[in-house]
Each structure stands twice: as structure tokens, then as C-alpha cells.
Design a protein around this nucleic acid. Sequence first.
DNA 1: AAAATAGTGTCTGTGAGACAATATCTT
DNA 2: AAGATATTGTCTCACAGACACTATTTT
Lengths: 253, 253
Amino acid sequence: MPDPEETFLAEYDPAAFPPVAVTVDVVALTMREGVPVALLIRRGVPPFQGAWALPGGFVHADEDLATAALRELGEETRLPSDVHIEQLGGYGSPTRDPRMRVVSIAYLLLAADLPDPRPGTDAAEAAWVPLRELGFGTGGPTPRPLAFDHAAILADGVERARSKLEYTALATAFLPAEFTMAGLREVYEALWNVPLHAANFHRKVLSVPGFVVDTGRLTAQGGGRGGRRARLYRAGDATSLHPALLRPAGEES
Amino acid sequence: MPDPEETFLAEYDPAAFPPVAVTVDVVALTMREGVPVALLIRRGVPPFQGAWALPGGFVHADEDLATAALRELGEETRLPSDVHIEQLGGYGSPTRDPRMRVVSIAYLLLAADLPDPRPGTDAAEAAWVPLRELGFGTGGPTPRPLAFDHAAILADGVERARSKLEYTALATAFLPAEFTMAGLREVYEALWNVPLHAANFHRKVLSVPGFVVDTGRLTAQGGGRGGRRARLYRAGDATSLHPALLRPAGEES
DNA sequence: AAAATAGTGTCTGTGAGACAATATCTT
DNA sequence: AAGATATTGTCTCACAGACACTATTTT
């Protein structure tokens, strides 16, 4: 057995390991005009120049992974103070990047009302793209191909968001600080792609302790096409929902 | 804007990125003598020499991440053909490894009746350690500290397994091909650390389509302390459970 | 007034949990 | 026979979904 200290030094040599780079990629979702959208950029540099891709980039030295994800996304859009961010996982197929071995840690970010994006470094264009145009939701055009394995990462992110709506209070992350029951229901309907029974949804949400808190105030105006003024709620303390709001058993898309 | 090809070549240079290594770490869980156990190794080399840690190691060039996880675990124990493996996520705090920047992709592995482990490379010892001794479950001694951030990874793995028991057929991954209802219930009780009502559990499991399949045969002998012979089941086709088997609402540990 | 949206009441079917009872098995 | 385990029966409560109805606002 070699001297431990010697082994330590041998392992400390960075060149002893296969060259690999670590990146972060971000699935950023928000609601715009009632439809769920994802932030995509059009790549301005090879590889996949001209293709659409998730925002992301290389992790800096001594930088936390989640910090890197927020930094990269901040290059494309102005982030509000309260965003939800969680890790999706690591993507490390040896062939996912033609340049070299790149392991990417993907993050899911949810926020309300993000502004129009600006193209950051290496990006020719940046845009909020409705999920419907990306192959999620019913119908819609044939989804555009994405660079690298970003289509799989995006699919994982959307599915994560969809399933966490069931058992966590995550839906409020899509909404501004104060929202109506109809607004909350729209998030569920748009992401799950199913119509929900308004009356039952209303009662079910109120039955979950800590999901929403009644502000006591009402919207200034009724609906655009008539209708009663709606009560305003804000997010409650609960992070997990008991009982859960399960997706209807039937089919989706 | 520089020539695209030139940029491509510049980005292709591995030395342009901060040196970083990618490892895999494995939370391997199984049931031994009715108690859930995790595989730990005692490190034979610095850093953290002598400390207990999760099995794992550096990802080889051109090797898939999950493949690396199985290879590293195969150094410590003989893996059967049918194991469940899923990714837990990436762990990349800049300070998690004192040697250099190391991003680790953690995997959760579940299997039935794994044999006694053998210490692999760099390991002084390898052992199945009851989760109870690692701070999970009620009571138990003060858990031993683990190397790196492995305590957090282990906790994430255990919690993942616990919560996936609720809505997936994952519990069967802990059991041999044929098992009894009591064996299945033991998995739930041991991991959730709660007593379950045997009669209700029985009926609930059978009510979930595709969870288990009746083989028509019975155990050779009744229970060690008397009792009727139990029916043998095998895992069904279902991967997700409808309806789910929810954890009792009360407290656990 | 008519239409649209918000919110409440009520009924029914399903499933979870409690408890009881029956069926086998070992000692 | 006694005790232990397996399995089935039954009752009750909570909740999801369906439907009907009331309340309030815009056009």
C-alpha cells in the first residue's frame, strides 16, 4: 500500500482525471397572458449555432451550482427577488456535447411575470416560447428541435412542474403576490392541459390548510366580459399540500 | 464578432475551463433480516481517511453516469441482474471536496438480498449499516459522521425511497421475485418507521391494479411462531400506483 | 335584461382506517 | 388447545366529482 500522503497528492493532481466541463442549464417557466411559457435562446456560436437551446453555461470556479444557474438566467432576463429554483438533475451522456465531455446540472426555475428577455452572451436571440409550441399541451405545431439534449431536459422540467403542482404549493410560484382563485386555477389548467371544475377547485384549495390566505380584498374590476369581482388571495405557509390536488385520472397530452 | 470556427476551437480547448472532476456516489439500500440497510465503505485513503462514506468514484472517460455508478458499486458487492437505479441529483458545493472542485452525481440503488460486501479499491472496509444506526428511524445511536457531504446525500436518498413508496411500485425492488404480503408490508413499515394495519394494507395493495400478481402458490411453512401459510405474489406491471399508498398523516422520525 | 364570472349547497361514489370475525398454521 | 399469522367482512368518515343554485358585476 502506498504512503497515504503520496496517494493524496497523486489524487490532487487535476490532470490525473479525464478532462470534463460542468455546465448548468435552466428550464425557466412562467405564465404570460395566461399561457405557460419557457425561456429559450437561439445559439449564436457553435456547436448547434442557430439552434434553440435552454439558457445556461459553464460553472465558474468556486461558484455554487444554483448560483451559476441564477447568474446564467440573469443574463437573459431580469429576475425578481422571489423565484422558485430547484435542481432537476445531472445530464452526463458522453456524447451530449460534441466538443468534449460536458456534464450539465439542470435547474427548474419558476417565477411570476418575468419581463421580456434580452439575448445574453453567445445568444443571438432570446424568447418566451409557449409550451404548446414545444410539444407540450394539446395540438400545436411540430416542436422545434433543441440543441444538445435540451429537449429531454425541458421535458423533465415540465413534467417536474406538472407533478409538483399535485402535492406542493408550487403553483403560487407562477403567480404574483396576490392572485385570484381563477388565476390559480388557470395555472393548473394550463400546465395540466385539462379543464378543472371551478366550484370544486375553489373548495378544494380552501380546504388545504396553509395553501392560500384570504387577503379580504377584491379585484378592482370584475372579469373583462362581466362577472362578479373576485377575492384576492396570497400564498400561505404550506409547502406541501394535505390533501393533495391530484391530476384527473384521464388522459392528457 | 469573431469567426465562428475560431470560437468553436477556442471553446474546444479543455484547459479553458476551471479544473473540475466528476464523480458518482451511490446510496444503495436493501433489506437484510427485515431491517433496511445502506452500503457504506470506510475510506482507506485521504481525504477523510478512516471515515465512513458512500461508495463511489470518478467517472471514466466516455462512460455514462449510471454505468459509472453501477461499476463503482460492483466493486463492493455482487449486483444481481435486476436492480432499480435512479438518479438523485448533482452535488456541487465548491467546498465539498478539499482536494479540488468535484461535482458528484448521486444515484439511488435498490435491490433484494444483496450479499455481504467486499472492500473495493481505496476502501478499508465495507458494510451494510442499518438505517436506524444512521439517524433514520426511531431512536438508535448518534449517527456516525460521514465523509464529504455524504450524510446529506444519504438523507436525500432515504427520503426519495420513502416518498416513492407512496406513489410507485418501488417497494417490490427491495424484495425477491416472489414475496408475501407481510414481506411487502415490512418494507413499508421499516422504511416509514410506522406500524401499518395488516388487514387494510392487504386489501389496499390488492386494490391497486398491477401492483402485485398472485402466483397462486403459498409459502412452504407458516410463520416461525405459528400462523397460516401466506400467499406468494410477484411484482406486477404497474410502475405508478393508483390509488397511492399514502404515509399515515401523523409524525414519524 | 342577458351574459359572464364568483362562490355556496348538496348528493353520491370511492377509498382509508378501525374493528370484528374467520381460516390456517406452529408449538 | 393456545397462540400466531393470514385473509375477509363491515362500518364510518373524508374527500373528489357532479350538479344545482345564489351572488355580483359588465355589456
